[in-house]
């Protein structure tokens, strides 16, 4: 569990449009890395390239090298489906499967892939994942009810439970709290703190306080202008980024003078 992600000279394209250019980043295991930056600078694009969700979009492709514990993710013969089993993802908007109950949603990863386990083992997995996502006490009496009947914050935690139920090595989160109230946000931030003992976490956020609260490292992306590619300006320990960043652009951004 918990592996390192390493990007070298990563260029990410939508068709012929270069969206993100020359990313060099090292993400250590069992840490939380926050990605910040102005809208449209390519944070989501970079995040989605880590678990090869980027190429789901027609024409989208990636150049350069991206490794998971030294293994090339974009190498010849690498199965994107296998990559996604090791690198889980939580999306900006909660997206539980509407046809499935809460219980089924948690084990969706197993269910969709026809992995069958005994009733007891499955019950345990569901409870463990829901506890891990801080949702167990709220839903334990209505596991057979549809997941879409939960509140937005609960749905998002259900999606986190679903993502950790497949026991990935890395967990990617794209603005997981942007649709949530402060209390649910706090619950998810607490959760991220607990999860980092087991997982490598990369989280995109627009909320500086959140980045400061939850992350060990912070990477700042920016973009020179429309039509230009986004790029990683610097990445350092969160403390450093928020107190004495090396780049002027980073300082302007985190102090609110830009974007």
């Amino acid at each position: 569990m918990s592996k390192a992600v390493h990007a070298k000279d990563l260029n990410i394209y939508y068709g012929s449009f270069l969206a993100v250019e020359g990313v060099n980043i090292e993400i250590k295991p069992k840490t939380v890395t926050a990605l910040i930056g102005p809208s449209g600078c390519g944070k989501s694009t970079f995040l989605r390239s880590i678990n090869r969700m980027h190429e789901v979009i027609p024409g989208a492709r990636v150049e350069g090298s991206l490794t998971l514990d030294g293994k090339e993710l974009y190498g010849a013969g690498v199965d994107p489906v296998g990559v996604r089993r090791q690198i889980g993802m939580v999306f900006q908007r909660p997206n539980p499967f509407p046809t499935m109950s809460i219980y089924e949603n948690v084990i969706a990863g197993q269910k969709l892939n026809n992995k069958r386990a005994g009733k007891k083992a499955t019950d345990e997995l569901v409870e463990r994942s829901l506890r891990g996502a801080n949702l167990w006490s709220e839903v334990k009496d209505r596991l057979d009810k549809p997941g879409s009947g939960l509140s937005g914050g609960q749905q998002q935690r259900l999606c986190i439970a679903r993502a950790i139920a497949v026991q990935p090595d890395v967990l990617l989160m794209d603005e997981p709290c942007s649709a949530l109230d402060p209390i649910s946000t706090l619950a998810i931030e607490d959760l991220i703190n607990e999860l980092k003992t087991d997982y490598t976490i990369v989280i995109v956020t627009h909320n500086m306080q959140q980045a400061a609260r939850v992350s060990d490292f912070t990477g700042f992306f920016t973009i020179e202008g429309t039509g230009k590619p986004g790029h990683l300006v610097e990445m350092d320990e969160t403390k450093t980024i928020f107190s004495q960043p090396k780049q002027k652009a980073t300082e302007d951004y985190v102090s609110g003078r830009f974007g």
Partner: peptide
């Protein structure tokens, strides 16, 4: 989003179509 949710769980495309 539902298709992407299934892909992100490591579900192949054909299973995503069939089951989601």
């Amino acid at each position: 989003e539902l298709r992407e949710a299934a892909y992100a769980l490591g579900t192949p495309k054909w299973r995503t179509i069939l089951k989601v």
